[in-house]
Nucleic acid binder design. Structure first.
Length: 425
RNA sequence: GGAGGAAUGGCUGAGUGGUUUAAAGCGGCAGUCUUGAAAACUGUUGUGGGCUUAUGUCCACCGUAGGUUCAAAUCCUACUUCCUCCGCCA
């Protein structure tokens, strides 16, 4: 959600932002709705004022033992009028809300303008691309050889798009989670949280997944709860409807959660293996910061996520997303992509975004500024640090050997009783 | 799942249909006094929105959403959360 006054005063900026993001939203229609809404509000409020004044008078007369009969009957009409106009207000308010919740955040000026992925910019590459003296296997093949991934049985249990990790496969998953959480908490000072995996509609709206993306979410209809698509949702909403102290900021959380995505509309895409699954594990980083620091904090956040990958010795690149690829709520976003030599693809394992005050306004998260002594919306950021399923793909495919065995990256050995390599039994 | 109780401003807490314009206290902020501080005293006090160049002014907000009424913090209904107990349960 954007500042209402800002939209009124800068409609051209909003129009350009929406156009650059490829969002279809009729700003002129919104402005007309806004005008109409204000007109009705003025009308209904002056009637309410009248109502309040006359009600006081009636009270006064009753205290003086006078009969306020005439005033009472005259008020009936006014009250009916108020009800009528309020119905109109309610109607226009719905329209107004639809607009205000569907106007996207404005891209930062440093974001490359363009609609397609072609406009994205690779801004950094790290690590050597591996050269194999054999045809590298895919993680699906490796998983089968080592008996650590079982997709067939997973689909028996739950359907396609699910994975069953087995033996060292399951242990590596657990080792990675611990490694990442330890890194972020011990080295970078994030506070670990473990949130609910189910959230209500309000939380989903607060971070911007709703109302736009409802069909992408798993929903429990009896309770109107949603399985979280990312820890961003519960963790950002930790401070919903709160006023934070300036000294508390920045607040930095890291959380492991499973993530659930229906991936509706992407059937037939990346259906094999761990590339696109309905349930995956992720360690998330979330920050609540002072507005003037948010772009610096984004760089730090990105670096924290990169550190995970560097430690695991995986070649990666960083992509600055163009306006068209930016998510609805983001003003700026970097993706971290890993090279998977088996399936020969770049894998997005992290998106680090600055949402400026867009989510804070929806979720109502403020802080009291010491300087101005006023309440101000904080800025929120989040990034994966990092997403597991695809990270496992990269580890298996990059660190594989000719015989199908896989070398365990150093930082994980501590969590695996010193194990250096996974071999087939 | 069942029975009962509760929800009021930053906090404590009064208010059970019309002098409430939400009392009072604490806290916060500003000032007086003081070498400085404390104490004391004085003043001030929330959020969102509309109108207004401004100063201001009006509307809404007493857990949430509806309802009754000329009028609701107050009465009614549903829901949410918390507390006490019962049942079930890893």
């Amino acid at each position: 959600m954007l500042d209402l006054k800002f939209i009124r005063e800068n409609p051209e900026v909003i129009k350009k932002a929406a156009r650059d993001k490829g969002e279809k939203i009729d700003i002129d229609a919104f402005l007309r709705t806004d005008k109409e809404r204000r007109k009705l509000l003025t009308e209904v409020e002056s009637l309410k004022r009248q109502k309040n004044e006359v009600s006081d008078k009636i009270g006064e007369m009753m205290r003086e033992k006078k009969n306020p009969k005439e005033l009472i009957s005259s008020m009936k009409g006014v009250s009916q009028k108020i009800v009528k106009i309020e119905a109109k207000v309610e109607e226009i308010e719905q329209k107004f809300k639809y607009f205000i919740y569907n106007i996207p955040n404005i891209p930062h000026k440093s974001v490359p303008v363009g609609l397609g992925p072609a406009s994205n910019k690779v801004i950094k590459e790290w690590g050597k691309m591996p050269k194999f003296k054999f045809e590298p296997r895919t993680h699906v093949e490796i998983g089968q050889i080592l008996d650590i991934l079982d997709f067939g049985r997973a689909s028996k249990i739950a359907g396609t798009g699910f994975a069953l990790y087995k033996g060292l496969g399951a242990r590596i998953e657990r080792a990675l989670l611990n490694f990442m959480l330890d890194l972020h908490t011990k080295k970078y000072g994030y506070t670990e949280v473990f949130p609910p995996f189910l959230v209500n509609r309000k939380s989903m709206t607060g971070t911007g997944q709703l109302p736009k993306l409802e069909e992408d979410m798993y929903r429990l209809k009896d309770d109107d709860l949603f399985l979280i698509p990312t820890a961003e949702v519960p963790v950002t909403n930790i401070h919903a409807n709160e006023v934070l102290e300036e000294e508390q900021l920045p607040i930095c959380y890291t959380a492991y959660t499973a993530c659930f995505r229906r991936e509706a509309g992407s059937y037939g895409k990346d259906t094999k293996g761990l590339m696109r699954v309905h349930q995956f594990d992720k360690v998330e980083l979330v920050k609540f910061v002072k507005p003037e620091t948010s772009y610096d904090e984004l760089e730090k956040l990105l670096n924290n996520a990169e550190e995970v990958i560097r430690a695991l010795e995986l070649p990666y690149r960083i992509v600055a997303l163009s306006t068209g690829d930016l998510s609805f709520a983001a003003s700026k976003c970097y993706d971290i992509e890993l090279w998977a030599p088996g399936i020969k693809k770049w894998l997005e394992v992290s998106s680090c975004s600055n949402f400026t005050d867009f989510q804070a306004r929806r979720a109502n998260i403020k802080f009291k500024s010491k300087k101005s002594k006023k309440l101000q919306y904080i800025h929120t950021l989040n990034g994966s640090g990092v997403a597991l399923a695809r990270l496992v793909i990269a580890i298996l495919e990059i660190h594989q050997n000719k015989d199908g065995s896989v070398n365990i990256p150093r930082p994980l050995r501590f969590y695996l009783d010193g194990l250096k390599m996974i071999k087939s039994a």
